[in-house]
Measured scan of single mutants.
Amino acid sequence: HSHMSHTQVIELERKFSHQKYLSAPERAHLAKNLKLTETQVKIWFQNRRYKTKRKQLSSEL
């Protein structure tokens, strides 16, 4: 499990705020920019979407 830097997370968050789903080319581009693997980016987005979904569910209770 590799640790992401604060800067990388900020960039991922910024991208996520604009779009929740990335196409393969977008993911490849973002990964390259942030010096991450595409898998890391993919998993981060999956986890981030899951967290957002959970938060929405709990706020509706």
Rank of each mutant, 00 (worst) to 15 (best):
H1T: 09
H1P: 07
H1C: 15
H1D: 09
H1L: 11
H1A: 08
S2K: 13
S2W: 12
S2Y: 13
S2E: 08
S2H: 11
S2I: 11
S2C: 15
S2R: 10
H3W: 12
H3P: 10
H3E: 09
H3Q: 08
H3I: 08
H3M: 08
M4A: 02
M4E: 00
M4H: 03
M4W: 03
M4P: 05
M4F: 13
M4Y: 06
S5A: 02
S5T: 09
S5V: 02
S5N: 06
S5I: 02
S5G: 04
S5E: 04
S5L: 05
S5F: 05
S5R: 12
S5C: 12
H6C: 15
H6M: 08
H6I: 11
H6G: 03
H6L: 14
H6T: 08
H6Y: 10
T7S: 11
T7L: 12
T7F: 15
T7G: 08
T7A: 15
T7W: 15
T7K: 14
T7P: 04
T7H: 11
Q8R: 02
Q8F: 05
Q8V: 07
Q8H: 03
Q8N: 02
Q8W: 08
Q8C: 15
V9H: 06
V9K: 10
V9R: 11
V9A: 06
I10W: 09
I10A: 08
I10T: 11
I10Y: 12
I10S: 10
I10Q: 13
I10L: 10
E11A: 12
E11D: 03
E11C: 14
E11W: 07
L12N: 00
L12R: 01
L12T: 03
L12G: 02
L12Q: 01
L12Y: 01
L12C: 06
E13R: 05
E13P: 01
E13C: 15
E13L: 09
E13I: 07
E13K: 06
R14K: 13
R14L: 08
R14M: 08
R14Q: 07
R14V: 03
R14F: 12
K15C: 15
K15E: 08
K15D: 00
K15T: 14
K15F: 11
F16E: 00
F16N: 04
F16D: 00
S17P: 01
S17G: 06
S17E: 11
S17C: 15
H18F: 08
H18S: 11
H18V: 12
H18Y: 12
H18A: 11
H18E: 11
H18N: 05
Q19F: 09
Q19G: 05
Q19E: 04
Q19L: 10
K20V: 09
K20N: 13
K20G: 09
K20M: 08
K20L: 03
K20Y: 05
K20C: 15
K20E: 06
K20S: 06
K20P: 08
K20A: 07
K20W: 06
Y21F: 07
Y21W: 10
Y21H: 06
Y21N: 01
Y21Q: 06
Y21S: 06
Y21P: 02
L22V: 05
L22S: 01
L22I: 06
L22T: 01
L22D: 00
L22W: 04
L22A: 01
L22H: 01
L22R: 00
S23L: 04
S23F: 03
S23E: 02
S23Q: 01
S23A: 05
S23C: 09
S23P: 02
S23M: 04
A24H: 08
A24I: 11
A24G: 10
A24L: 12
A24S: 07
A24V: 09
A24C: 08
A24K: 12
P25V: 13
P25G: 15
P25L: 11
P25Y: 07
P25S: 11
E26V: 03
E26C: 05
E26D: 05
E26L: 03
E26S: 03
E26N: 02
E26I: 05
E26M: 04
R27M: 09
R27Y: 09
R27D: 03
R27G: 02
R27K: 04
R27E: 04
A28I: 07
A28F: 08
A28H: 12
A28G: 05
A28Y: 07
A28T: 07
A28D: 06
H29W: 13
H29F: 05
L30W: 00
L30P: 03
L30K: 00
L30Q: 02
L30E: 01
L30V: 05
L30D: 04
L30C: 07
A31V: 01
A31E: 04
A31Y: 01
A31Q: 02
A31R: 00
A31L: 02
A31W: 02
A31I: 01
K32P: 02
K32F: 15
K32R: 05
K32Q: 13
K32M: 12
K32A: 11
K32Y: 13
K32C: 10
N33L: 14
N33Q: 14
N33Y: 14
L34M: 03
L34P: 05
L34V: 03
L34F: 02
L34N: 00
L34G: 01
L34K: 02
L34R: 00
K35W: 05
K35V: 04
K35A: 07
K35P: 00
K35F: 09
K35Q: 12
K35D: 15
K35H: 09
K35R: 05
K35N: 13
K35C: 14
K35L: 13
L36D: 00
L36R: 00
L36Q: 00
T37Y: 02
T37V: 03
T37W: 04
T37A: 02
T37D: 03
T37C: 07
T37S: 12
T37G: 03
E38M: 04
E38N: 04
E38F: 05
E38Y: 05
E38R: 01
E38D: 14
E38I: 07
T39W: 14
T39V: 13
T39F: 08
Q40G: 03
Q40H: 02
Q40L: 10
Q40D: 05
Q40S: 06
Q40Y: 06
Q40P: 01
V41Q: 00
V41N: 00
V41H: 00
V41S: 01
V41I: 09
V41A: 01
V41Y: 01
V41T: 00
V41L: 04
V41D: 00
V41C: 05
V41F: 13
K42R: 13
K42G: 03
K42M: 09
K42V: 05
K42C: 12
I43T: 06
I43D: 06
I43E: 09
I43K: 11
I43F: 06
I43V: 10
I43R: 09
I43S: 06
W44A: 01
W44N: 00
W44Q: 01
W44K: 00
W44I: 03
W44Y: 05
W44G: 00
F45D: 00
F45E: 02
F45C: 05
F45V: 01
F45P: 00
Q46E: 10
Q46W: 06
Q46T: 05
Q46L: 05
Q46I: 15
N47V: 10
N47G: 05
N47P: 02
N47M: 13
N47C: 15
R48L: 04
R48C: 09
R48P: 01
R48N: 04
R48V: 05
R48M: 14
R48Y: 03
R49D: 00
R49I: 04
R49Q: 02
R49E: 04
R49M: 04
Y50C: 15
Y50M: 13
Y50H: 14
Y50S: 12
Y50N: 08
Y50T: 09
Y50F: 08
Y50A: 15
K51N: 08
K51A: 14
K51M: 09
K51H: 12
K51Y: 09
T52E: 15
T52H: 15
T52R: 09
T52A: 15
T52F: 14
T52D: 15
K53M: 12
K53V: 08
K53H: 15
K53F: 11
R54M: 12
R54L: 14
R54A: 07
R54N: 13
R54I: 14
K55L: 15
K55R: 04
K55C: 15
Q56V: 06
Q56G: 10
L57C: 15
L57I: 12
L57F: 10
L57Y: 06
L57Q: 13
L57T: 10
L57P: 14
S58F: 07
S58E: 13
S58C: 15
S58H: 06
S58Q: 13
S58V: 08
S58Y: 11
S58I: 10
S58R: 11
S59R: 03
S59D: 10
S59G: 10
S59C: 15
E60L: 15
E60A: 08
E60F: 09
E60Q: 15
L61A: 12
L61I: 10
L61N: 14
L61V: 11
L61W: 04
